[in-house]
Every structure is written in structure tokens, then in C-alpha cells.
Write a protein that binds this DNA or RNA. Structure first.
Lengths: 210, 210
DNA sequence: TAGCGACTTGACCGATCGGTCAGTTTTTAC
DNA sequence: GTAAAAACTGACCGATCGGTCAAGTCGCTA
């Protein structure tokens, strides 16, 4: 580890990553209270004491995980401008959110669990940066509607519609699998679901592709 | 209790109801593992031993609650026929599902928690009666599309879209409140959200209100 | 009044919870 | 080579977990 200017991961980085991934698995399934450090340690294949040595406490681990999730989502969601094409923006929004459900389902379920508990750790985030994010998008949607470039659809509820419909395939995967009789969701399933969502929502907003 | 042909609730009925309602509150928030009998007993204002006297075990209480929820949903969802008007059927579907989110949000969150955990107790229900319910609806939707009475939209994913969008206002209430800056969702909010959903989804399926 | 069944509850059980700590091993720096 | 720093872990702590049990209380009928 001499040439560690910016090279291979250190011991700490490697173990923290293992713990984070294991914790995301357990927290996403059982929620904050239902998850135990022992279960996380078992999933990470480390002694419980070692987990606590790295993360300090259950609370700190949970908060760090939430922050990692919010950071991931922030970087994945592109910015938009009033000059953009509404259909392109909304389609990109749907497809990138659906891609997050496919690539990071555990993050989505972790977030869902936090909200179900009443968002005890994310309340200020919701009322702060997340609210600003929604408001800035909503303002643009509203202007598009005023200019006749799309139907007058309440922009906030439209965003909720897109959020819920795309997160459904991560959060309610067990339900989707049980009802469709599949063992897992393939790339083709996500692509078809995305196509269907784009078809209905774009047309429902008075938009046509391209 | 002499004239108990069908009269006032017995002691058992009264206490079981208190326990069920308290348990739904705790399970909906913290999930199966995260909920404790002690917390349920506190919410029901009964000693822990008394709760266990009535319900037997945590597992039995949880299963009974899930069954109560599924029964409620079954009775609330109306049946449909191929001869019905597509727009009316889908609008009724959206509005009745949204009404459930408004009147029974805890049931919705309880179900959401169960699915997030991988549906350990509801797997056979999902692959059984729920799958049949979806398939029968989907078949009618498909025939409507073949007859040109609505756009060819994948019916299963359309049902998922309606489910997720309506349940969002129960399951993610904390997020909705944080972003809209409100303290609670009023009747007007549910009405406006329902209108918005009907507007987008009906038009998105090539339907106009009759 | 005696007895019976339904109801109530505090005390208690072993297991597990989140977390601490002392002590050891391993790695790093000089 | 040696000492300091980092990594690691088993033993242990008080609290809480789901659940049991015996000793009640209470209203009813015989």
C-alpha cells in the first residue's frame, strides 16, 4: 500500500463497501428497526464487532446509506430547461428513473422503507432540496402548458405519477413477479414497461414523440 | 350477554378490534420484524400479556391483519364486463383505488411493507387469486384494444400503473406532505389527484370520458 | 354460596438487541 | 528492527424481544 496516491482500495474502503452493500440489503428488506447489526454482519461475512468498528453505530450506518442513495439519485437525474422539448424531457425522465429502479432496486426499497416509517431521517431533505427540485421542474411544466406545448396537467402530481410508476418495479418487485409468474425481471421487461409508461403518459399529457 | 343474537360487541370483539387497529398502526410503520408486541400493546392501551392472550402470537396477529386487508380490498373492487364502457371502468377503477388510499392508508402501508420484505406471507395469494384477478381484467382490456375501443396498451402494466399511482398517496404520504409543504392531505387533494390521474391515463389510453 | 369459564396481569424465561471494551494481531512508518 | 497506528474480535453489558405461566378478578349459573 505504498503507492496509494489514488490506486486500489484500502482495507477500510473495501470493508466499508462490503458493509454498506450488506446493510442496504438488510435495511431495504426489514426497515430500520427490523434490521439487526448481526444480520448485516452475517451478510457482509464479518464479525459484528468489526461492523461496529467501521460504522460506529446502527444509526450512523443507516444515515450514511440514505445519503449515498440520495447522492446517487441526484447525479442520475439530468437538469432541464424551458427551451427543451417537453416530450423528450419527460421521456428521458421516465426512462432514467426506470433505469434506476433496475440498477439500484435496493436503494429504492431503502428509501421506500424510510418514507413508510414517516421519513424520520429524511424530513428536512424532503422539505428542502427535494421540494426545490420538484418546484423547479413544476415551474417549467407549467410554462410549457401556458405556451400550449403540453396539456395543462398539474405538474407536481405528474411528477408523483412518474415516480410511483417507475419505483413500483423496484419496490413492489415481489408483487410484479408473483402476478406475472416470473422468477425475475429481465432487461426486456424493463424496456417494455418503460415503453408502455412513455406511451401512456406522453399521450396523456398531449405530447407526441420526436 | 343474554340477548347476544347480534347485538352490542362482546368484550372479546371490542378488545380484538382495539388490538387489530393498534397492530395495523405499528406494523404499517415498522414492518413485521420492526414491530414489537410491547409497542402494539402500548398503542392499544393494554398490557402486553393481554394482547398475547387474545391473538396468540405475533405471527398470527400479522397474518390476520393481512387477511383483513385483502378482504377489504376484494369487497371494494367492483367486477367488470366486456360490455362495459372502457373509460367508465378505468375511471371507476382509479377513483375507487384512490378512495382506498384515502380511507385505509394503514392497510396500504401494511401491504407495502409485506411486499418490500419479499411477500413471505402473501406469496401464494399473489400467484393465486391476485394473479387471476389481474388476468381476468387484462383479458378484457385486450379485447377492448382489439375492438379498437382503446389504444393497444399492455393491460398488466396499465394495472400496475394505476395501482402504483394511487397507492403512492397512502404509502408515500410522508413524501407527498414534505414536498407539498402540507400537514395533511385533504379531501380536495385526493379529488384533484384523482382528476389528474384520470385525465392523463384515460387520454393516454385513447379514451374520452363518456 | 359454591363453582366455573372468560378475562386480566405481573413475574419470569431464554434469546437477541445495540453497543462497549480490553486485548490481540496486522500493517505501516521510520 | 522497532514502535506506533490501524485493524480485528471474543466476552460482556443492560435493555428489550416474543412468549409462558400461575395467580388472580369478575360475572354468571346451579
Amino acid at each position: 500500500m505504498s503507492d496509494s496516491i489514488a490506486a486500489e482500495p484500502t482495507v477500510r474502503e473495501r470493508n466499508e463497501r462490503r458493509i454498506f452493500d450488506a446493510a442496504e440489503l438488510v435495511f431495504a428488506r426489514h426497515g430500520y428497526r427490523g434490521a439487526s447489526i448481526q444480520a448485516i454482519a452475517a451478510a457482509a461475512e464479518l464479525p459484528k464487532s468489526n461492523v461496529l468498528y467501521y460504522v460506529g453505530s446502527k444509526r450512523r450506518l443507516y444515515v450514511a446509506l440514505l445519503e449515498r442513495t440520495m447522492a446517487r439519485w441526484n447525479t442520475a437525474l439530468s437538469d432541464i430547461s424551458e427551451d427543451d422539448d417537453p416530450a423528450t424531457v419527460i421521456e428521458t425522465f421516465i426512462r432514467s428513473k426506470m433505469a434506476l429502479s433496475q440498477t439500484h432496486p435496493l436503494s429504492s426499497r431503502l428509501f421506500a422503507n424510510e418514507i413508510l416509517q414517516g421519513a424520520p431521517f429524511l424530513q428536512e431533505t424532503l422539505a428542502g432540496s427535494m421540494r426545490e427540485w420538484v418546484e423547479s421542474r413544476a415551474a417549467i411544466f407549467r410554462r410549457w402548458a401556458e405556451q400550449g406545448r403540453m396539456d395543462p396537467v398539474d405538474p407536481v402530481w405528474l411528477i408523483f405519477l412518474i415516480w410511483s410508476a417507475t419505483q413500483h418495479y423496484a419496490d413492489f418487485e415481489a408483487q410484479v413477479l408473483g402476478i406475472t409468474g416470473q422468477a425475475g425481471l429481465a432487461d426486456a421487461d424493463f424496456a417494455a414497461a418503460s415503453d408502455c409508461l412513455c406511451q401512456v403518459i406522453l399521450k396523456g399529457c398531449g405530447l407526441t414523440r420526436g
